[in-house]
Amino acid sequence: MHDAAALMLEAAVNSIEAGAAAISVSVSIRDGMADIRVEDDGTYTLSGDPFRDGSTTKGEGRGRGLHIIYERSAGRCRLTRGDGMTVLEFSIEDDGSFCRLDEALLPLLGLDAGITVRIRKGEREIVISRSLLEERDAVPDRAAGIRRFRNLIRSFEKGDIYG
């Protein structure tokens, strides 16, 4: 069930669970691949291979996120840490889950106040943050906000608004 957009979500959930206050997500779609980068200021204890299955301390069904990313990306992933920032990068086949950008981004931008997303599709780049959604009263947590959120994303995609 983990499509490419769900893996991006999974990575952001990992950041939140690590106590990150600022999370920056970048997605680049090109040549049939989705390159995803998630940078955060969370607190991790990195020991051994973080992508290894079964290393969870969170209980049944939890803590498998990095291993799932490893599996789905066929090992094209890496996790680095320095200067208080952790960066997770991975590349997976573009399965079309970013075609409906509003559906891909609604769960992500509904997660946490500190998320900023940068999406590059072809020549167009879109940057959306929770603070921008708040400014435009487009946080997707109520009927009216969901409607404004979808309209905003579509406007970005059409190039009516530049982020």
Binding site: L9, G61, R62, G65
Partner: peptide, 11 residues
């Protein structure tokens, strides 16, 4: 929306 939820289709 944890790992197992996303895996099961929570998105």
């Amino acid at each position: 929306m944890g790992t197992s939820g996303i895996d099961a289709g929570a998105k």
